[in-house]
């Protein structure tokens, strides 16, 4: 699936919920189900700075030129947000990730709710995913 198709899917899922309590229940559920990041990837290097909770992000480029993400946090809501981002961006081509317009954040109403504080780490995670993808693009010899 393409990035925007997955985003639209998520926007539709969130549209089913009336209030933020329910939306958070959903995010928490995703957070609980996100597989934990193997300890070897929970390094200082993979840690995302500027978050109130500890957030780790690990990425790798596969032979067929796709970037895969794994993430973790000691806070469940941030894990849930990481889960959403991974669902959208993991397995895509680096150039698609780098130029992705993540409109789902606005559309599900998250921008007004929690994305404005850097403490939740959402913006930091997006930035890191894009930076990693840019690095992979360079590695693949693609024009950035």
């Amino acid at each position: 699936m393409k990035i925007n198709e997955i985003q639209d899917e998520i926007v539709n899922e969130f549209a089913m919920f009336d209030d933020w309590s329910d939306k958070y229940e959903y995010i928490i559920d995703i957070g609980k189900k996100l597989p934990p990041l193997p300890a070897e990837y929970k390094t200082e290097e993979n840690k995302i700075k500027g978050c109130q909770s500890q957030v780790w992000l690990h990425s790798q480029l596969t032979n067929d030129g796709k970037v895969f993400f794994e993430g973790d946090s000691d806070a469940i809501i941030v894990r849930g947000l990481a889960g959403l981002l991974i669902r959208i961006l993991s397995g895509q081509k680096p150039e698609e990730v780098a130029k992705a317009d993540l409109y789902f954040i606005d559309k599900v109403g998250m921008s007004g709710h929690l994305a404005q504080t850097r403490s939740n780490g959402l913006a930091s995670m997006v930035k890191q995913m894009k930076l990693d993808s840019l690095a992979y693009q360079a590695k693949l010899g693609q024009k950035i």
Binding site: D19, S21, Y24, I28, D74, A75, I77, V78, S119, N120
Partner: peptide, 19 residues
Amino acid sequence: HHQDIGIILDTQGIAVRTG
């Protein structure tokens, strides 16, 4: 996690500090 506590309390209209 305290961050989770703070976010959910905020949805209840309750402002506390976490961190």
